[in-house]
Design a protein around this nucleic acid. Structure first.
Length: 547
RNA sequence: GGCCUUGUGGUCAAGCGGUUAAGACGGCGCCCUCUCACGGCGCAAUCCCGGGUUCGAUUCCCGGCAAGGUCACCA
């Protein structure tokens, strides 16, 4: 068979040589040991925690080594394309501190552009043609129905499904048959002519999993679809070679197709990159756990976390604790360190699937937020409010001075212990609401309305804005004693029957009247921030609780 | 079903032949305390099962089992 003539018939025209491309995309000029990694999403625009998980690994491995991470868009499947998706991905990732050095819509070093696979049609065809010329690829005229029938037959016979060996019908087409089909205008795909034997197994070193057993590929996989666009496998080999990726970090679902990729790299004459297949983030789904899915888990979308107002750094820290088993210990030792200083290692990545744990994320979030100054918190909250907050919430930022004193109180800044009341911006905004808007009573009084009324009016009669915390509390105690409540907690605990309640109950009444809530930070400080007029107004209007 | 991967408390996990089997989250209890939050102390809870190898296995080997992944002109 004249392979050269066939190649010319299948992919007419002249294409550049391997040599040409090797020179066009030269080895990257990076220091020794620098890794080049990449994130290669398809442009659906939807990006979830699992993608971030992977992206952080890419970013860390690249930047820890002094290398670069780039963004390549795998848009070979039209069905997946969504407008504005690439920008959405970049912005979502950016928010969580994953910044690309080059890539689609980012720019950077243009040497390796374009980063959209659809724009790289020529190079894929050039190499497909080369493989055909070498007899390592051939046209296949099987229709979808043919393939479905084949699969059914194989399934029925309990044989391995796929296009391989004796089932690879078009592999052995004669020259006449091929040209006859071509002349008839039949559509075709280009398949790799596999030389592998599945009886052969070998060890392959994975950067994350360690040594894995690989079975030789014998599937004649499609490399060019009938529209002339490459499949993932083929594009992966060519792009990662010429974009000079040193280590391919991807989900473990790709492990199954590693044999295909190995054969493809060999057939193409490219050296193999290193691979690291990471486990996927799982979600508990009833009895079982399963991989995070775009379809089923919209609440795991990165957009969701931004809307909720999760602190970007907290999410990143959580991802790092999942990504590298020794990160948490390191971070505990260096709580004020930049997480980026952590010596991230691919081989420290978990081998088994990890369940996403919201409790853990929330705990980390509280801790991270408690490290902020009032200024930093204000900036964080304002950024969130501008994007997702209500008009009322945006107004909180008008009086910066007041906001800062509110935050200082609510975060426990200056005190011996920092408070950790909220995990997200939206929670924080709700938490400080009563400082800014008319209080909506969310918690119920535990004492009856008459008592509330007399307690409040008594307090109002002795209340003075000028009192310091101590004097203020003394007055609360006086009011308590006057109404038969224990002023001293110890005395109350020793003899709870002897009183109507304790000073705690009285404080609670004041607290609910002033803020609407039974639980708040220090009440005296709250009253100072609110101002005398507002305090009197609130306590007065609360005197007649509507039951 | 074939192939691959993985099995340490509810979750994330240290551990590499001898340990009281770390730590973190969550749960529970106590203390602190005008509430909450913070903090402190404590408790419960784990080596998938069965065979080996060994003086001794969570750790090594074999076999089960379970879970996950994958078997497209999708990535």
């Amino acid at each position: 068979m004249d392979h050269k003539a066939l190649a010319e018939r299948l992919l007419p025209g002249s294409y550049p040589s391997l040599q040409f491309y090797e020179e066009k995309y030269p080895a990257r000029n990076l220091p020794k040991g620098a890794e080049v990694t990449r994130l290669a999403p398809s442009p659906t625009g939807f990006i979830h925690l699992g993608n971030l998980f992977s992206a952080i690994a890419d970013e860390r491995i690249a930047h820890r080594s002094g290398g670069i991470v780039y963004l390549r868009i795998e848009d070979t499947d039209l069905k997946r394309k969504v407008d504005g998706a690439v920008e959405a991905v970049i912005s979502a990732l950016n928010y969580f501190d994953v910044k690309f050095d080059e890539g689609a819509e980012i720019g950077g070093d243009e040497t390796y552009a374009p980063w959209y696979q659809r724009q790289r049609a020529e190079i894929y065809r050039a190499f497909a043609k080369k493989l055909i010329e070498e007899g390592r690829a051939y046209p296949c005229f099987c229709t979808e129905e043919d393939l479905t029938a084949l699969r059914e037959e194989q399934t029925k016979n309990k044989e391995i499904t796929g296009y391989y060996g004796k089932y690879a019908r078009c592999r052995n087409l004669t020259e006449e048959e091929i040209y006859k089909n071509l002349d008839a205008g039949k559509p075709f795909v280009i398949r790799l002519k596999s030389m592998g034997n599945p009886e052969n197994k070998f060890k392959f070193h994975d950067e994350i999993k360690g040594d894995v057993t690989v079975t030789e590929n014998d599937q004649d996989v499609v490399i060019l679809k009938s529209d002339g666009i490459p499949t993932y496998h083929f594009a992966h080999a060519i792009d990662d070679h010429f974009m000079r990726t040193t280590i391919v970090i991807r989900g473990e679902d790709w492990l199954a197709s590693l044999p295909i990729h190995i054969e493809l790299f060999h057939a193409l004459g490219f050296p193999l990159p290193r691979y690291g297949h990471h486990c996927s983030l799982m979600k508990q789904d009833g009895e079982t756990r399963r991989k995070l899915s775009k379809r089923k888990d919209p609440e795991l979308s990165l957009e969701f976390y931004r809307k909720e107002g999760y602190f970007a750094r907290a999410v990143k820290v959580y991802m790092l604790t999942l990504l590298n088993s020794n990160f948490e210990e390191w971070y505990l030792k260096h709580p004020d360190a930049d997480p980026n200083e952590f010596p991230f290692k691919a081989e420290k990545m978990s081998k088994s699937g990890t369940l996403f744990d919201l409790d853990k994320l929330n705990d980390i979030s509280k801790n991270e937020l408690s490290k902020l100054s009032a200024e930093e918190m204000a900036t964080f909250l304002e950024g969130w409010a501008n994007e997702f907050g209500s008009e009322a919430q945006k107004a909180y930022f008008k009086d910066r001075e007041k906001l800062l004193s509110v935050l200082t109180l609510c975060m426990g800044i200056g005190g011996k212990k920092r408070r950790k009341d909220f995990t997200t911006a939206s929670q924080a905004m709700a938490f400080i609401e009563y400082f800014f808007t008319r209080t909506t009573q969310v918690d119920a009084y535990r004492v009856d309305g008459e008592t509330v009324k007399s307690l409040l009016s008594d307090f109002l009669s002795v209340y003075s804005y000028e009192d310091d915390a101590q004097a203020w509390f003394e007055k609360v105690k006086e009011v308590a004693a006057r109404h038969g409540f224990a002023a001293d907690m110890k005395a109350y605990k020793a003899n709870p029957e002897g009183y109507r309640g304790s000073v705690a109950d009285v404080a609670e009444v004041l607290r609910i009247a002033a803020t609407g809530r039974a639980n708040t930070p220090d009440l005296w400080t709250i009253m100072r921030i609110l101002g005398e007029e507002e305090v009197r107004r609130r306590l007065t209007s609360a005197e007649a609780p509507c039951e």
